[in-house]
Simulated assay, not measured.
Amino acid sequence: MPFKTRLLAVVAPLTFGVALALPLLVPSTASAHRGWMVPSATVLSGEGAWVGVDAAVSNELFYADHNPMRLDAVVVTAPDGSVEKIQNPATGKYRSTFDVQLAKPGTYKIGSAVSTITASWTQDGQVKRFRGSPEDFARQVPAAAADLKTIKSFNRNETFVTRDAPTTTVFAPTGKGLELVPVTHPNDLVAGEAATFRFLLDGKPAADLEVTFAPGNSRYRAAPGDFKVRTGADGSFKVTFPEAGMYWMNAVVRTGETGRGPGGPGMGGPGVAPGGAQPPATPLAGDGMSASYTATLEALLP
């Protein structure tokens, strides 16, 4: 079905269809605490178009039942490639919300791309730990630190909205982390029709990458409905979504030592001793890298 035949007025949102091919449909158990952003519409037409976006980290997909998503790293990439701020941000107990004005025709990317470094080193006979941005790492960690070990992470979380005709400028790869390079436009997807996507890792094809798809509305199904596909040698894969609706897509790459022991700045949680005291910092096991990509897509009725 041609894209232009499915455009509706601003008040009538469309759903964007995704497809799932490759015979590798592997059911899996739903994962807890998955981050997502869901726009109030994915395809609109006409001037004066706006979308509202819900953002949360939840146990059930697209139901705010755990924590709100932080919005400090979320930006809007306009169809001409310019970067805009989100509007009217607000954070509640379980979810965050914000608005995006679609002032220009074309496809918008709404999302975050966050780079962090976790490190350990030895200084004056003691193990030191760090977790933060690459800029803070350069300022706070000695350049010639002894026994330096690092885990470099790059995480993306995105969704896409189109006003009028779809465009592709926002999909230009940056060469950093895992990136989605769609062959089939994410706002022109239809349930039951095969779509093609491609993943790059640091600008190169992400071969043999496992990609998970999870449909929303799991509370109304006996089984979660998750399925997995794998990328080919060139990083591409085909997918045909079995039914219309919102889908959560996720892929993760890890190399080297990416485990995190207790102790050190930002490393609370299971390693925190009773009473809130931090245990002694422990060194990382080795160097490692992790990259993740998450997107919320919508599959349309045929």
Rank of each mutant, 00 (worst) to 15 (best):
D287Q: 12
R163M: 00
A138T: 15
K85W: 05
N59T: 13
A214E: 07
F154N: 09
A145I: 12
A30K: 01
R221E: 02
R163C: 00
D287L: 14
S112V: 09
Q126L: 15
N187M: 02
P89E: 09
T122D: 11
K128E: 14
A244P: 00
A285G: 15
L148T: 04
P13M: 05
F213E: 02
R6K: 13
I117Q: 10
G48H: 10
V75W: 08
G203N: 15
A41N: 01
T29C: 00
K85C: 06
T196V: 14
A206K: 08
T159L: 14
L209Q: 15
R260Q: 15
A214P: 02
P27G: 04
L71G: 05
N67G: 01
R198W: 08
M289V: 14
K176L: 14
T122S: 14
P23G: 14
G203W: 13
S133L: 07
R156Y: 05
T196M: 14
V170Q: 01
S133M: 10
S31G: 02
G286Y: 12
V57R: 03
G225L: 01
F237T: 06
Y108L: 04
E243W: 12
A206N: 11
G232D: 13
N250R: 06
F130A: 10
P68F: 05
G268W: 07
I151A: 02
M246V: 07
V100C: 07
G235S: 13
L8K: 09
F154Q: 12
D54G: 02
A90E: 10
E158P: 01
K109D: 01
Q126G: 09
N59Q: 11
R131A: 14
G259N: 15
A165S: 12
A78N: 09
V83P: 00
